[in-house]
Simulated assay, not measured.
Amino acid sequence: MSDSNSYATNPVLSDNETMAIGHRPTFISIGPGRCATSWLHQSLEAHAEIAMASVKETEYFNTFYDRSAAWYESHFKSHAPAVGEISSNYYLDPDVAKRIRDYDPSIRIIINLRNPFTLLQSFYNFGVRRGMELNSLAQSMDVPIGSLMGSGFASRKKRNSLTPSDTVTLLDSVCLHDRLKPFLEVFPNDQIHFFIFEELQYDWQAALSNAYKFLGVAADFEPEGASQIVNSSVVPKSKLVARLATNTASLLRSVGMYRLLSTLHRSNLVKKILFNSNKEGSELSNLRSTLDPTVVKRLDAQIERLKAMHRPLNKLWKED
């Protein structure tokens, strides 16, 4: 879940309402958020051979699975060699992997990866950015990830319709090996691509080129502005600013003004006026020292399993 263009807070078409005939996606990025999903979405959308969904996160396979496949496919209005979406909270729901496999066993899966410690910090910081009243990070392990990331959590809670993706705790949300296991069990290795957050710091061109290759499109394309960070870590200048930004984003989503919302997210002027920059997770060793030893032990175990699963992580995930 993220503050991106999601249907979670929007009025949606019912199956009885007229829908444009759409296309079947060929790939899905399942998250997590705060792992360069916004940057990836922008880079995929810019490619002439890739057609992205009309909203960044359809949330069909978790929040709106009671709707029809036709409703889902109506979000994919353009045909291209690669057609897909990014829904950053799919990885949180253990039922989503089988649902996607049942929909199309040949579909390609992109999984974003980030060191669980810095991902933990980033999720927490995002809650602060949204103006939430939170205890320290160490005391927030049981906070529901849905409440931190927004995307309709409050409205679903009022309707008593929270999903499994909403109620996973902050700590459980960053236990990535556990969360990704259902996908690794039902999809073969050649249909899974790991997009690693830390690789962008060293060679973003190679990371993006490899993603393009995985999708079967021209790999030498470089989108304009790709060297700029999208949705970077910032902290609000005040709680009032945080609430104003959150409420404005919700209002723009509710009336379907996704392009304006995306433009505001990317605006350096808006960030300069409303936020201060925040170098989250810059000292991994310091972050570890602030957490309960049982949390550190659990996340270390997750990291070792992830490294065994994907060997390039051994070079990219090193303790400061």
Score class of each variant (00 low, 15 high):
Ile145Tyr: 01
Arg156Met: 09
Ser4Thr: 12
Cys175Ile: 06
Ser6Lys: 05
Gln302Ile: 01
His265Cys: 05
Ser285Asn: 14
Lys297Ser: 12
Ser68Ala: 09
Val96Pro: 01
Ile145Asn: 00
Glu17Thr: 10
Leu287Val: 04
Ala46Ile: 11
Ile28His: 03
Ser151Gln: 08
Glu283Arg: 10
Ser285Gly: 04
Asp66Ala: 14
Arg34Lys: 15
Asn160Ile: 04
Val168Trp: 01
Tyr91Asn: 02
Pro144Val: 11
Glu224Leu: 11
Asp66Pro: 00
Ala308Gln: 09
Leu162Phe: 08
Ser238Pro: 02
Ser151His: 04
Phe194Leu: 06
Lys315Arg: 06
Lys237Leu: 14
Val96Asn: 02
Leu120Ser: 05
Val255Tyr: 10
Pro312Tyr: 04
Thr290Leu: 11
Thr169Cys: 02
Ile196Thr: 15
Asp15Ile: 03
Phe214Ser: 00
Lys307Gln: 09
Asn16Val: 07
Ala218His: 14
Gly152Pro: 01
Ser267Asp: 07
Glu59Tyr: 12
Arg114Tyr: 09
Gly31Gln: 08
Arg311Thr: 11
Phe117Leu: 11
Ser68Glu: 01
Pro94Met: 03
Ser282Cys: 10
Lys272Leu: 12
Thr169Arg: 04
Lys271Gln: 15
Asp300Pro: 03
Ser151Val: 06
Pro25Glu: 10
Asn112Gln: 13
Arg253Phe: 10
Arg305Pro: 00
Val230Thr: 14
Glu45Leu: 13
Ser4Lys: 05
Leu306Ser: 01
Thr169Lys: 02
Cys175Pro: 00
Gly150Lys: 04
Val128Arg: 15
Leu40Ser: 03
Ser14Lys: 12
Lys213Asn: 15
Pro144Gln: 11
Asn125Arg: 06
Ala226Glu: 02
Gly84His: 10
Gly216Glu: 01
Gln205Glu: 13
Met1Val: 14
Glu59Phe: 09
Ser155Lys: 11
Ala8Pro: 00
Tyr91Val: 12
Arg253Gly: 02
Ser54Met: 06
Lys56His: 12
Phe117Glu: 05
Leu316Cys: 01
Leu180Asn: 05
Lys307Ala: 00
Thr163Asp: 09
Cys175Val: 07
Pro32Ala: 14
Leu180Cys: 08
Pro94Arg: 10
